[in-house]
């Protein structure tokens, strides 16, 4: 029986395991590469739930150590924020990092 790979790894952008593996098979082997091509991690949660899972998939498929795959930079906003929170000079803890 074929392995079921049509379940979502990234729920925000509805990206399946199959789609992620396909891109890794094309030779893309970093979190950024996979994100930019599949949109996994680009949605509302900005990869806060799925990026570790994706890193593990990349690591398993390529043999790269997980620590190496997980090296990504974060930029503010560190979580989503209403625009009015920053309007007219406002700031909030979500943006101070």
């Amino acid at each position: 029986m074929a392995e079921d790979k049509d379940f979502f790894i990234c729920r925000c952008e509805e990206v399946t395991l199959r789609e992620i593996e396909q891109v890794i098979d094309e030779g893309y082997d970093t979190l950024d590469d996979v994100k930019r091509i599949t949109r996994a991690g680009m949605g509302l949660c900005q990869g806060r739930s799925c990026s570790k899972v994706i890193a593990r998939i990349i690591s398993q498929k390529t043999g790269k150590p997980i620590e190496e795959v997980l090296q990504v930079s974060y930029r503010f906003p560190v979580r989503t924020e209403k625009m009015k929170a920053l309007e007219q000079g406002g700031g909030s803890d979500a943006t101070d990092n």
Binding site: G43, L44, F76, T80, K82, M83, L86
Partner: peptide, 20 residues
């Protein structure tokens, strides 16, 4: 960018921005 956007399209005030 936010100040400008909200002044042009005020409904954006209540929209979340997720990334820069």
């Amino acid at each position: 960018i936010i100040n400008q956007a909200v002044s042009i399209v005020p409904v954006l005030k209540d929209v979340n921005f997720i990334r820069a």
